[in-house]
Design a protein around this nucleic acid. Structure first.
Length: 112
DNA sequence: CGCTTGACGGGAA
DNA sequence: CTTCCCGCCAAGC
């Protein structure tokens, strides 16, 4: 059985729209786990994210966190580019692509 | 059991 | 830009 924290993180991950990204720390905050950015990274590495948009999670500074040149890095890069997110190497503009959850999205979350 | 790691983050130098 | 450093803490070893 997966940890409750992991379930919340994965549930939120599924809500991130195509073409938009969130930072590890932002996802932790949304999950009610401030200061737990590393937990988000671990969950993404540990849990099965095959059916989820894991590629929409990037470092707070707009940098891909996977080792540059690795398979995962290439995969994330390709997926983002396919969604229209422009990247220069491992960098992208957070001002341009960071997801800001709207009221409707927040209400969805409260409606268990 | 204590010590190290790590898909993090922010600040200082 | 690049280190360092510290806070964070579950997993590995």
């Amino acid at each position: 059985m997966t940890h409750a924290h992991a379930r919340r993180i994965l549930a939120l991950l599924a809500l991130i729209p195509s073409g938009r990204v969130v930072s590890y720390g932002q996802l932790a905050d949304l999950a009610g786990l401030p200061g737990r950015a590393r937990l988000v990274g671990r969950v993404l590495r540990t849990e099965d994210t095959s059916t989820l948009p894991w590629h929409r999670v990037v470092g707070a500074g707009g940098r891909l966190s996977l080792p540059e040149g690795s398979d995962g890095w290439r995969e994330q890069r390709e997926r983002l580019l396919a969604e229209g997110v422009m990247l220069r190497g491992s960098r992208l503009d957070m001002k341009m692509y960071q997801w800001q959850p709207d009221l409707a999205a927040m209400l969805m979350l409260m409606d268990h």
